[in-house]
Design a protein around this nucleic acid. Structure first.
Length: 969
RNA sequence: GCGGAGGUUGCCAAGCCAGGUCAAAGGCGUAGGGUUCAGAUCCCUAUCUCGUAGGGGUUCGCGAGUUCGAAUCUCGCCCUCCGCACCA
């Protein structure tokens, strides 16, 4: 066994690559370009083993393409815009223990002593320092994993030059009319006076905003305002519910008078309404009064109900007892016991006279589904909230999907509920009878400050309108022409495209680029990282030439990225050297488009879709994204990784703990990109062992002179097999990479190659020179085949083999088709199968020690018969097969034996592997006799079934192609 | 709810798209043997079940169907996981 110091070798080659600037890519008109990007990491902490999977796959692709002769650009930058870094800095400043602990943990990974950790932590009161620290940490992690990145092009999204680029991008959107301003609802904390994100919440982290329709029922000189999710039910209204003990208010809202609960008035204010409280009163004061229904304007009664929660929506509830179980039960309670009504001046008769209105037909229900759902559950009172909730869900679901509006629904009659909703809202709106009212979709939602979170509507919110005319169509066109690998993810893109409407692209806090036309706003961090791949193509020239942000004008970017205007004018206006501008333009044109973008599928619904949209908005078609490839996340020992569980392995630990090549091999071979990868500590040794075997074999054989033994050299069959297998493996492996079957490729480049060499070495009787020359030839292929996965160890052997340049730039091994001999590979298979068969017999005959195995190979005509069946399209039915064979005169004379073949085929329900001819099968087995003897511990003698010298048990007649018959004695 | 992915032999996981050579790769675990002073992150063999001759039986979430033939195709059912907007 060879002892190998992975760390030392890895360091050595990383240093050499850096010293030679091996991966700094410049345009080369002689070579075709390949521009690969993986999204830059967000630099608010240490990266872990899961991030590493994505970057490792990216690097593997870059390395493979380089070996295929492409001029590969693989750049990297870092992301710091947005709120997380700022948020963490604020928490550190505020002395938040959790934040301090988390950062201390991360810092310890990179710093030697506690003093250094504390010193660095003390500097984390500035987001830039934090971001820079982790950006540096991450690039050193990436280097230590052997990523072949062009580091000259690194930047951060906080850089002033980047801001200039983003400003240009947003001017472009503005010009196209894609940026709009309008009201936008957000979860909002009234106490902090800020919008709240998931991280700001103590409870209800998954809360979303639900849009209610506020329906304005005419009442006195204003409106009773009830908010609902089911506006189509206004046709079933029988009364209004008001909680008698709750404080309601008359408020002036944008010139109208509304009645809502006191709490709701406050919500309206947050929802950008102009609210003025005119009068407060208790609910009981209006109970017994009448208001107007909307569809038929008939006078309708206000009734008391304790279940009405003033904190819920507007605190005003319109009652549809035919379809809402809560309403039905409340009404039923009043029918059963009208005694409480007297004090409101309502008579029992008035309430009894209320007719429940059925207004939706659904199969399986009668006229009043709510009543049925309540009775089915035997609900006795308003107190049984859970049961009522279930009944509501049941009715709602049934009505939404299968319900049809009845005749009493005016122009909406006969239409399906799921289609009619929006039209009802539009109709209400046109009559000035509705408004929009927002609520969180769950309660409670509580801010970390302890306050109940509400919905706030931001007036003047800037957003990108992905529904702008023509935009989606263009994006869909781009998607249709783009390669998505694995292809299964395409429909996720399609679904996202359908669902994208408006998206806020700016907000008031966080780090980032200010909106050029409204500097109070900062461009949101997912919206500022969509076309920056273009920036990579020129950024190194901006920095190395010390171009100032002010020089990066709109015209400058227009010229460099779009070819608009004249370089001469840009040079004059900006003071940037004319030649430099031209060289940036041509460098952009050389690299762009982005040939492949590789990342995780979780970005499909935002980042990746935005990237496609933004590209089509700004660039001409030839510069659209070409391909998106994806890999799933990483699990840890079968469970999710999380810092709180402490089961996260940081990237920085990988080189010492496992070795970069071992990690890389694991990351690529453990799962196909499209499926979740599980990191199992127990499986690491197996991976390391595979590399170790590679190292052993290359150490022993790679320095010999490679030699291909052609037919004229009369090599052993097993040598021809090894040559064939090596080449077919290369062919298959290459095919796998091209189809993004990276795991299968990795298995070819490791396990398959190892077992090929081991199988070959296990064969006695190959002359040393022939064996060593052949294995050296295999090593020469292998070291290149494996290089994209394990570049360090492969560089080491490549150089030991006496090659001048880096294996990183060596030519990808091409399969030599002339050496691939399927027939020899099949014969090899027959030999292995025969060994297995003999073993099985030995096992069954345990106790009886056998000395020899006699192997009988089928007669030649049987091979021909099988070939006939293989080539003709007959079904595996005895009659059909026999008919086919009997039509061949040469077989017709052997009907009896032919039947035995046919029986076997029918029984097996198909064909099996067999050699090209009897002679070849005989040759392969005969040549393998010594090997088989070694493996089995008994003498092996091979005969042709056609007149064997020795066949005491008359076994030869059972031999079939690929299934020699056996006799053990 | 909407959208997506998936349920395979002790565990993990291939195979399914292009049905037959599938009792179903590989890894882990387990058992036996070897190398070794010993051990292992070493090598070999075995690992659904029955069988003293390479064979039989029963398996791929459940149920039905298509087919000469289904882990693979179709339909229904059950279950699990993931994403869902201002969060990178």
């Amino acid at each position: 066994m060879t002892d190998i110091d992975f760390q030392e070798i890895e360091k050595k080659w990383q240093d050499r690559w850096a010293k030679d600037k091996a991966f700094e890519a410049d345009p080369d008109p002689e070579r075709e370009d390949f521009f690969l990007t993986v999204p830059y990491p967000y630099t608010n902490g240490a990266l872990h083993i899961g991030h590493g999977r994505t970057y490792t796959i990216g690097d593997m692709i870059a390395r493979y393409r380089r070996m295929r002769g492409y001029n590969v650009l693989f750049p990297m930058a870092s992301h710091m815009t947005g709120t997380p870094i700022l948020g963490m800095v604020e928490r550190i400043k505020a002395g938040d223990q959790e934040a301090i602990e988390q950062y201390t943990r991360d810092l310890r990974l990179y710093l030697e002593t506690e003093e250094e950790v504390e010193e660095q932590l003390a500097k984390f009161t500035d987001p830039w320092t934090t971001a820079r620290f982790f950006a540096d940490a991450i690039s050193s992690d990436f280097k230590a994993l052997g990523y072949s990145i062009d580091w000259r092009r690194k930047f951060t999204t906080g850089d002033k030059i980047y801001n200039k680029f983003i400003e240009w991008q947003y001017h472009k959107f503005m010009d196209k009319g894609y940026i709009k301003q309008g009201d936008y609802p957000l979860l909002y904390c009234p106490n902090c006076k800020n919008p709240v994100g998931e991280d700001d919440l103590l409870e209800g982290a998954t809360a979303k905003i639900k849009e209610f329709t506020a329906i304005k029922f005419p009442f006195k000189d204003g409106f009773l305002v009830a908010a609902t999710l089911r506006p189509e039910t206004i046709f079933g209204i029988t009364n209004m519910w008001i909680n008698p003990n709750v404080t309601y208010v008359w408020v002036k809202v944008d010139g109208e008078k509304w009645v809502v609960s006191e709490e709701a008035a406050e919500k309206l204010r947050l929802q950008a309404k102009n609210v003025e409280i005119v009068e407060e009163f208790k609910g009981k004061e209006i109970i017994g009064e009448r208001f107007q229904a909307i569809h038929d304007e008939h006078e309708t009664l206000i009734l008391p109900a304790d279940f009405v929660n003033p904190k819920n929506a507007t605190g005003v509830v319109y009652s549809v007892p035919g379809h809402a179980p809560f309403d039905y039960v409340a009404l039923r309670d009043l029918w059963d016991d009208p005694s409480g009504l007297k004090k409101y001046g309502i008579s029992a008769e008035e309430v009894r006279d209320i007719n429940i209105i059925g207004m939706i037909d659904i199969e399986g229900y009668g006229n009043h589904p709510a009543k049925e759902a309540v009775e089915k559950r035997d609900i006795k009172s308003q107190e049984e909230e859970e049961k009522l909730e279930a009944a509501t869900q049941e009715v709602y679901k049934a009505e939404f999907y299968d319900g049809v509006m009845k005749d009493n629904c005016m122009q909406f009659s006969g239409r399906h509920i799921k289609d009619v909703k929006e039209d009802v809202v539009r109709w209400l709106k046109s009559k000035n009878r509705s408004d929009v009212f927002y609520e969180p979709d769950q309660r409670p939602v509580i801010c970390k400050c302890g306050t109940d979170v509400q919905v706030g509507v931001f007036a003047g919110q800037w957003f990108l309108d992905y529904q702008s005319p023509g935009w989606k169509e263009k994006a869909r066109e781009a998607l249709d022409e783009m390669k998505i690998v694995p292809e299964t993810f395409r429909n996720l893109f399609e679904a996202t495209f359908d669902w994208l409407t408006q998206r806020p692209c700016a907000r008031k806090r966080g780090i980032g680029t200010r909106l050029p036309f409204d500097r109070e706003w900062i461009i949101e961090s997912l919206s500022d990282s969509t076309i920056y791949m273009a920036f990579y193509t020129i950024v190194h020239k901006i920095t190395s030439n010390k171009i100032l942000p002010e020089q990066l004008t709109l015209d400058f970017f227009d010229y460099v990225f779009l070819g608009h205007g004249k370089a001469k004018n840009v040079a004059e206006d900006t003071g940037i050297d004319y030649e430099l501008i031209e060289s940036m333009r041509s460098e952009f044109l050389y690299w762009y488009p982005n040939d492949q973008r590789h990342t995780a599928p979780s970005h499909i619904s935002n980042h990746l879709s935005f990237a496609i949209f933004h590209h089509v908005a700004i660039f001409p078609k030839k510069h659209w994204l070409q391909c998106i490839s994806l890999n799933e996340h990483v699990n840890m020992e079968g469970g999710k990784m999380s810092k709180s569980k402490g089961n996260v392995i940081p990237l920085v630990e990988i080189p010492q703990k496992y070795g970069a090549d071992v990690y890389r091999t694991y990351a690529i071979s453990a799962a196909e990109p499209g499926s979740l990868m599980d990191w199992r500590e127990k499986d690491v040794p197996a991976v390391r062992n595979r590399i170790r075997q590679f190292v052993d074999i290359l150490s022993n054989y790679s320095e010999n002179a490679p030699r291909v033994y052609n037919k004229k050299d009369k090599p052993k069959t097993i040598t021809r097999w090894a040559l064939s297998r090596a080449n077919s493996t290369v062919r298959d492996a290459t095919d796998y990479i091209e189809r993004f079957r990276l795991r299968d490729y990795a298995i070819m480049a490791t396990s398959e190659m190892i077992s090929l060499v081991n199988d070959y070495l296990a064969r006695p009787g190959v002359p040393t020179e022939e064996r060593e020359g052949t294995i050296a030839y295999i090593c020469d292929i292998w070291v290149r085949l494996f290089a994209p996965i394990a570049p360090h160890i492969c560089e080491e052997f490549w150089s030991r083999m006496g090659h001048e340049g880096y294996v990183s730039f060596a030519q990808w091994p091409a399969a030599d088709e002339r050496l691939i001999d399927e027939s020899i590979e099949r014969s090899h298979h027959v030999v292995e199968a025969t060994i297995r068969d003999i073993r099985e017999i030995q096992k069954l005959l345990k106790g009886q020690k056998k000395k020899a195995a006699h192997v009988y190979v089928a007669k030649e005509w049987m091979f021909e018969a099988l070939d006939i069946i293989k080539e003709s399209d007959v079904s595996f039915v005895v009659g059909d097969l026999m008919k086919r064979l009997m039509s061949e005169p040469s077989i017709r004379t052997r009907g009896q034996e032919a039947k035995s073949i046919v029986d076997r085929i029918v029984k097996e329900n198909g064909l099996w592997e067999y050699s090209a001819s009897s002679e070849e099968e005989l040759g392969a087995l005969d040549e393998s006799a010594d090997y088989m003897s070694n493996e089995l511990g008994l003498d092996v003698v091979v005969y042709s079934a056609d007149g064997p010298d020795y066949d005491p048990e008359n076994k030869a007649r059972f031999a079939l192609p690929g299934r020699p018959s056996l006799f053990l004695e």
